[in-house]
Design a protein around this nucleic acid. Structure first.
Length: 394
RNA sequence: CGGGAGGUAGCGCAGCUGGCUAGCGCGCAACGUUCGGGACGUUGAGGCCGGGGGUUCAAAUCCCCCCCUCCCGACCA
């Protein structure tokens, strides 16, 4: 991607009314734009990051044996009345009446919907277990949205639901998700503290929260040394049991021909919250330092003299070769001052930066900088491609 | 929902004890000079001063009501 043809509206100054570092950097690096409190657009660069995160989630959740689907965002209230959560979640539900006068809401979560769906198709123990998930927008009318996308009124969530014939099956699925979650957060460059937690309005007995220590955390967990941290909840998994399946009549016939309620688990990850959490953990005073797995681009090529044919020819060649190798490359081809291009590069935090300038070219060299470590190396032209490939794949 | 802070150009801000045509920096457009860490000069475009009502010869500025945003707390699947 060429910067001059792309859409990266960076901001030099810290926007008013922002406190959280991640909120400031999300806005300054042109990743998101606020429409109203707690409601955000994801700009091209931010959307790329979200898609990278979603790809990681899909890989790991699929590997845990779950199948992706997509459920509706608008729900009949009738379904929510059956579990009583029309009352317990009343405060956050965005409700409306459709043209026919039916009471509806925008889904704050999907236990009722998935249970109703599974009930329609599953009648026998032979059809179980099954785990389904989606990555979808949730709607919650938060009393107090906070810290940009950390606590938003509209946000992207990965929600998975497992259905089993017994507790042993649930435990197995639960453990598989637990492992998948560890892999996902690890690949996102996060090291969450995993804590047993209250099940709250979700119901069920056992649950674990995945908490990433960060200054703006809304939760507190306690780590293995007994030290309390401020932390952001990025994931939460629940062994729900039969709360929803009994309320909604999701039953199956067991081997003996007896009707039994399906045993359920649910597993959530705040996808859009992750982007902020990653920034909270990976940044410095100059900007974001994306972990390579979620970076919008892996390499930024920064030609300094765009009017110089030799510089641009080399930049273009490197761009083409890296792209051919499947690397996501951003080339800052703007005819702008070196200072601005360097500062923007630091701000948007692409992991590896290749600077091509007259100074280096006279010695037949280009400069490769690792954004995370700050290490700069000067490499000969002919070895540049190999070196970048090595660094990216490491 | 309780408490606090704020709303003036795309962004960051000044002006606010009423008083010239509403300013500054950044950004944006044009031209010229620059060209390895947010360059410089000249010219220019861009404002219902959050909205409504009131006081006054005169309101960004004073009074009343409303809206919006942020922070702390309560709440939080």
């Amino acid at each position: 991607m060429k910067w001059s043809k792309y859409f990266i509206p960076t901001l030099k100054e810290v926007p008013t009314g922002t406190e959280a570092i991640s909120h400031q950097l999300l806005l300054r690096s042109g990743l998101v734009h606020m429409l109203t409190s707690g409601v955000y657009s994801y700009l091209p660069l931010g959307w790329r990051v979200l898609r990278k995160i979603q790809d990681i989630i899909r890989e790991e959740i699929n590997a845990a044996g779950a199948h992706e689907l997509l459920m509706p965002a608008q729900h009949p209230m009738e379904l929510w009345q059956k579990t009583g959560r029309d009352k317990t979640l009343e405060d956050v539900m965005i409700r409306f009446k459709n043209k026919k006068g039916a009471a509806m809401c925008l889904g704050p979560t999907h236990e009722e919907i998935i249970t109703d769906l599974v009930k329609s198709f599953v009648q026998s123990y032979r059809q179980l277990p099954v785990t389904l998930y989606q990555i979808q927008t949730k709607f919650r009318d938060e009393t107090r949205p906070r810290f940009g996308v950390v606590r938003a009124c509209e946000f992207i969530m990965k929600d998975a639901y497992s259905f089993d014939i017994d507790d042993a099956g649930l435990k197995k699925n639960y453990d598989a998700m637990y492992k998948a979650y560890k892999n996902i957060f690890d690949r996102c460059g996060l090291k969450p503290i995993i804590a047993e937690a209250d099940t709250g309005a979700m119901g069920g007995k056992i649950s674990h929260e995945f908490l990433v220590p960060a200054a703006i955390g809304e939760d507190k967990a306690t780590d293995e040394n007994g030290v309390e941290h401020q932390a952001i909840e990025v994931g939460h998994i629940f062994q729900l049991g039969t709360k929803y399946t009994e309320a909604l009549g999701a039953l199956y016939l067991d081997e003996t021909g007896k009707l039994q309620p399906i045993i359920m688990g649910c597993y959530g990850i705040g996808v859009s919250r992750l982007i902020a959490t990653i920034i909270e953990v990976h940044h410095d005073e100059k900007g974001i330092k994306w972990p390579i797995g979620v970076a919008p681009f892996q390499v930024e090529i920064l030609p300094l003299q765009v009017a110089d044919p030799q510089t641009m020819e080399l930049a273009q060649r490197l761009y083409d070769e890296l792209t051919k190798q499947g690397i996501d490359v951003l080339m800052d081809d703007r005819d702008d001052s070196a200072g601005r291009k360097f500062n923007d590069a630091d701000l948007i935090g692409i992991p590896f930066r290749v600077t091509i300038g007259k100074r280096g070219l006279q010695e037949g060299k280009v400069e490769i900088k690792d954004r995370a470590t700050g290490v700069v190396e000067s490499v000969p032209l002919e070895g540049a491609l190999e070196r970048v490939l090595f660094l990216v794949k490491k």
